[in-house]
């Protein structure tokens, strides 16, 4: 009987931990549907601070964990410059998350903004297995 009580408590604790982790984990729903790539190798861990820039098919940039919209390269430049200032001395890298249907011109604009600020940049893709 005592043994059974221990098991019940054990199950309780495990469930509490499980739901605790679920509730504090940030499950982020993204509206960006990345381009799929079968050949891009698995990424290495990055040492830099990463600034994410999402790009919708209509050319709107999504920043600040996709909570904020900015329109046009000038507004994007201002945002990234502010982020770089906020992050201080840490090296910063820009990760561009463009929807697969996004016209290339918006990706090019974002890349140019990074070049203007002298920041390294990368295009995020979704890894897909070859059919």
């Amino acid at each position: 009987m005592q043994n059974s009580g221990f098991v019940v408590r054990f199950v309780d604790v495990v469930l509490i931990l499980l739901f605790g982790f679920i509730s504090i984990s940030s499950v982020q729903a993204t509206e960006i549907e990345l381009a799929e790539s079968t050949e891009t190798p698995a990424p290495l861990p990055e040492v830099e601070q990463v600034v994410f820039v999402g790009i919708r098919p209509d050319g709107t940039y999504l920043v600040d964990e996709e909570r904020r919209e900015v329109r046009g390269p000038n507004a994007l430049l201002q945002f990234i410059a502010a982020e770089v200032t906020r992050l201080g001395d840490s090296p910063v890298k820009v990760r561009i998350r463009a929807s697969r249907d996004t016209p290339m011109r918006y990706l090019v604009d974002a890349a140019r903004v990074c070049d203007q600020l002298g920041l390294p940049k990368a295009l995020e893709v979704q890894m897909a297995s070859e059919a």
Binding site: A35, E36, S37, T38, E39, T40, A98, S99, R100, D101, T102, P103, M104, R105, L107, V108, L123, V125
Partner: peptide
Amino acid sequence: PESVVQATVDAMDACDR
């Protein structure tokens, strides 16, 4: 400029392959 990102990624994949 108006081509989609997926097409560019496909072309890069072909090169990598």
